[in-house]
Nucleic acid binder design. Sequence first.
DNA 1: CGTTTCGTTGATAGTACTCAAGTGGTGTGG
DNA 2: CCACACCACTTGAGTACTATCAACGAAACG
Lengths: 239, 239
Amino acid sequence: MRNATFAENPAAPPKGSAAVPQSVAAAATSIVLRPRQRLALGGEEEIVYVVQSGVLLLESQPRLAVRQIVDLYYPGDIVRSRSLPPLPALALVAGGRAEVARLSGRKLQAMCAADSAVMSWADAALAGQYARRLLHVATIGALTGEERLASLLYELVMRTGERGMDKSWTFDLPLSRTDMANYLSLNADTLSRMMSRLKQAGVLATTGRGRGFTPELEALGTMSPLAEALRTSHAPPAG
Amino acid sequence: MRNATFAENPAAPPKGSAAVPQSVAAAATSIVLRPRQRLALGGEEEIVYVVQSGVLLLESQPRLAVRQIVDLYYPGDIVRSRSLPPLPALALVAGGRAEVARLSGRKLQAMCAADSAVMSWADAALAGQYARRLLHVATIGALTGEERLASLLYELVMRTGERGMDKSWTFDLPLSRTDMANYLSLNADTLSRMMSRLKQAGVLATTGRGRGFTPELEALGTMSPLAEALRTSHAPPAG
DNA sequence: CGTTTCGTTGATAGTACTCAAGTGGTGTGG
DNA sequence: CCACACCACTTGAGTACTATCAACGAAACG
């Protein structure tokens, strides 16, 4: 039903963010998620999730028949129920197979106060996520449909891509077409048309089961005015 | 040239966020900004601004002739250069007259480590700002043009509104039409048309010098599917 | 192997954008 | 004090892009 190849290698270190501190992982409850599984958000006490593998979607439904994915969480990202607005039908959903660590906001706060390494890790993670949200606003606010799609594909290459022998890259597509459309604020039909156009142009190919392939990454990069920013915001700290 | 009534009462406590701790204000450099004045962002060391009065716009220009306002900062908000993505032509600009406190990221970090009250203040401020960004994504991603405009107006009432004797509210419009359009990801012409329609419908009136008036706030509220979320995210913590 | 879901594609309609001209307010200088 | 220039804003007509609706094809699941 859903693409689930993204989480096939949970042991791989998360790209684009510093590794989760051992102490945090030890203090948390590990949860394995199946595609489309939902995570609890509300409650009196603050809940914190740390993504360990896979992709999580934060979606809302401002009106019936209009769904918007407002945030996308990758391994190493932190989801705090406190920093979520009371949007209609807000839900945290696993994109494919995923694994998260759950702990209470109180516990995380205590660990931050006790260990400055934990604090700087959490601070860096949240600062990076904030920057990515601004990038998302710029993407859906100022770019054309094709540019938005190219930006998302480029982002996914940065996150999950594996370089081939030449300039080609193979990468995961952990979101369904509908999810991609809702993330980019496009119609699913329109998005499908755009992907077909990219395939026809030879910029993109899909090799079944939610995997993508691009013969030359920079062809995608030139299609997105924000490629440079995406490279910086989604690549590992080292490069 | 610009509307500058917003900052007329700098002594008023900021709505929508906890007051800035005295120690932070004391350690920072206060800067008075004129409309359209720009603030430095780059540099080796992290720069932190805390808004004290007025409104700040974070704008980018993904392409020539396409400008997008990706963030909007109100009194009490924190701007960290670290949590900003490397967007093209990124700039932090004062909407009207404004006042900010500037300090280094290192200094703020030290104060957070030393004083848990400072830390919980900064944490709460940034969490609230993250939530508002998600709200912004939902607004420009899932709502129609009129709903977006109604949402922004509702937000401005929450932030700067003064209630009249009846159900009417008077509020500031600290953004120019162009800025509002760029924030809502609309064309300035289209936005102007929409405001005219609202005026004709009797939902809105502008009383010169960048001030707005609505005879009944809930008329605006019913036009925005996110009014409830805006109320929670922009009203003072007490209510 | 049937059923269900997801993805693709075509024809049509709607919304917002572009370009252009016109209006109104504000500040400056004669 | 008035004339002018400038800027923000408004409004109209035509266009382009994306959404909608419907049908079809393909892949996953039991």
